[in-house]
Design a protein around this nucleic acid. Sequence first.
DNA 1: GTCTATAGTCGGATAGAC
DNA 2: GTCTATCCGACTATAGAC
Lengths: 239, 239
Amino acid sequence: MSMANTAQFDARGRSRGEDVRLKLIEAAIEIFGRHGFEGASTRALSQRAGVNQQAIPYYFGGKSGLYLAVADHIAERLKALIGPVGARIGLRVAADHTPKAGKTLEAAEARALLIELLETMAGVLVNEEAASWARFIVREQMEPTEAFERIYEKIMARLIEAARGLIAAIVREDPSSEAVRLRAVALIGQILVFRVAHAAVMRQLGWQKIGPRELDAIHTVIRRAVGAITPANALMSAP
Amino acid sequence: MSMANTAQFDARGRSRGEDVRLKLIEAAIEIFGRHGFEGASTRALSQRAGVNQQAIPYYFGGKSGLYLAVADHIAERLKALIGPVGARIGLRVAADHTPKAGKTLEAAEARALLIELLETMAGVLVNEEAASWARFIVREQMEPTEAFERIYEKIMARLIEAARGLIAAIVREDPSSEAVRLRAVALIGQILVFRVAHAAVMRQLGWQKIGPRELDAIHTVIRRAVGAITPANALMSAP
DNA sequence: GTCTATAGTCGGATAGAC
DNA sequence: GTCTATCCGACTATAGAC
């Protein structure tokens, strides 16, 4: 046993360094989300993570490196949670673009998939973990940096695109048209508002947290919103 | 002229002190909105306002006092811009609660009023001034402080209440029911998303800013969303 | 590979001149 | 009433011990 310390591993098979990295990232999501980049001190970050303050420059090259690592981590987690559904829908929509016998995406199927997509997104939002992600992301929306770029490219853009494909199939319009894009944004807005206008929504609805019961309520909103998507002329023909 | 300097007035009849106060508040909306409370330095605040750094402790008792003053200022401006419409609608809804001959609020009128209310809100959001208000408010939603309290009580709660009254009149339900509250939140979410998921929306729609043309697009969304509000059983009876 | 100590910078607020 | 000068605390990152 004369060898110098090489990487040590914990019970879950993570090397010591990986463990410290992860602890820091998790603490950082919370603190950056609540206080912003400048408002988060490396002292607070390392203390909450329970690691040495110097682990930040060591592992991430500095506070900014940690910030970007947080963005990548969030994008990664979101992709893991929503990505599979999004990808599956993406494929289904793509198949519709090169229509072969029996492959056409009918409105009913598109509606079902859209509900599935939105409910998956809502399910993620409900997660308490998502509350801290949301704080981080919303800050980036206000004053986007490189971190926003990464999250947007890695997951957001794909999800919105999938939603657009489905909406296009329902209303029979071009998925790249502004009309479809607007519908997609409005649809997602109805879900996002629960996280983003968090304080106001909680008060309005008398909610303490967003849990299973509250998720049900959001599902109602989703189903109604998807049900309300109809081709423009169909709307006009209503009484 | 042996008297000591008393208050001096500028061309617009504002005393010097008032002028400095206002300059600081305007600079602070921008900087607090972008960088958060901790991220904003009193040096940056005073420099942008073009006033001395010591004006902050002098006029506002400190950085936190300036922060709260910003909240009050925003609430005040919002109230001035949206309040009249909200109040008028509030009265109309209240009249419906004590129905007398010819006073009943019919669905058609409620829809028209709801569109008016939402379009007014959207109009405020379009305003470039609102971009900075939005940044400030959204931060407060994530991590509410006393500042959120003030804005919520002074204007937000009233607007949501007005919207609820109108929705209730359309769907013929209790304005305090969760169903109506949910509809109100979802409805407002469709507008808010344009400011709140700002970076993502701009990219999705290829917009550079939210101007008159973009406002028209949002109006389309509003009219469609209000049109989609129907009593639950009416929805069921659709083909 | 991880820690303690510290250097250098920038933060907000107070004191006192004008 | 408004400015300049300055204090002291808190910040991040580096250097070097273990």
